[in-house]
């Protein structure tokens, strides 16, 4: 069950999207997310849908993968939708007991679901087509100006990259620990809340111990491979903009132009 979380997982394939410079993808995702909140009409979503659908089509990633990320936030999605539905004031549609559903609420809830779905799917496209290290490279390079503000950009990027590498390892470990404690009769499914929280101790303690052991091992391995921070480090594949990246920026500009036009016209 734990392994189903795909957010931040890379899907190896050979597509234009995979080959794009991570900076383009980061910037593009940012613009796309902002665009989702710019328009208030369904027509705007048609543009976003066309954009999203064409990205999925050229990404060579099975559609199923895209939507797997949604499963994890399904509850959140429903929750937000319901809240919006009931709490938005406006023309009354249905009313029973103390609850009133308004037309505006319904409309707002629909927007919310669409926005969140598009947001998650859009960012999934980025993570699915970009290796974690590429992603952090991109972040590191586009955030470099923050060095002036004494923000340790390289360190943060390195931390992110390590975290991303170790997430699957630790998830697998968690799975193993759960099974092993179950074999000792542990019960994670019954009892009241306090009982269930206490039942987590036999999982969390070994997990922390293991995470520290791994961290220690990794630190030693990095040190013995001459790691000493970002200074003086080179890259096997330094990021360099290619023609396709310029084209991608143009496509992005076109998308934004469409969104704004739609926003003004409708």
């Amino acid at each position: 069950m734990i392994r189903e979380i795909t957010l931040g997982q890379y899907y190896p394939a050979d597509s234009v999207l995979h080959r794009l410079d991570p900076r383009v993808k980061l910037f593009g995702t940012l613009l796309y997310v902002i665009s989702l909140f710019l328009f208030q009409s369904f027509t705007g979503y048609i543009v976003a849908t066309v954009f999203l659908a064409s990205l999925i089509a050229i990404s060579h990633v099975p559609v199923k993968f895209m939507f797997r990320g949604l499963k994890a936030i399904f509850i959140l999605l429903i929750f937000t939708a319901v809240l919006n539905m009931f709490l938005t004031p406006g023309r009354e549609l249905v009313s029973f007991w103390k609850i009133t559903i308004t037309i505006e609420g319904l409309r707002f809830a629909a927007f919310m679901i669409l926005r969140l779905t598009y947001l998650i799917t859009g960012s999934s496209i980025m993570t699915l087509t970009t290796t974690p290290s590429n992603l952090t490279d991109g972040l590191e390079k586009s955030m470099r100006w923050m060095n002036i503000l004494k923000v340790p950009v390289h360190e943060i990027a390195m931390m992110m990259s390590i975290a991303l590498t170790f997430i699957p390892v630790l998830l697998e470990e968690t799975d193993r620990i759960i099974k092993a404690q179950q074999a000792r009769g542990a019960d994670f499914e019954s009892g009241n809340l306090i009982h269930r929280i206490r039942a987590l101790v036999p999982i969390l303690v070994p997990l922390f111990v293991s995470a520290f052991r791994r961290a220690n091992d990794l630190a030693l391995a990095m040190e013995s491979r001459c790691y000493r921070g970002g200074e003086g480090r080179t890259k096997m594949r330094p990021l360099r903009y290619e023609r396709r990246d310029i084209i991608a920026y143009l496509v992005l500009a076109l998308y934004i132009a469409c969104i704004i036009t739609v926003g003004i016209l409708f």
């Binding site: 290796t131 290290s133 991303l164 791994r214 491979r225 001459c226 480090r233 080179t234 096997m236």
Partner: peptide
Amino acid sequence: ENQMIGTIVEEDVAFGPENMG
């Protein structure tokens, strides 16, 4: 498992030389 730094084999192998500049 605890000494892999890259998410792809060749990235991992490149880690040392990259550190050496």
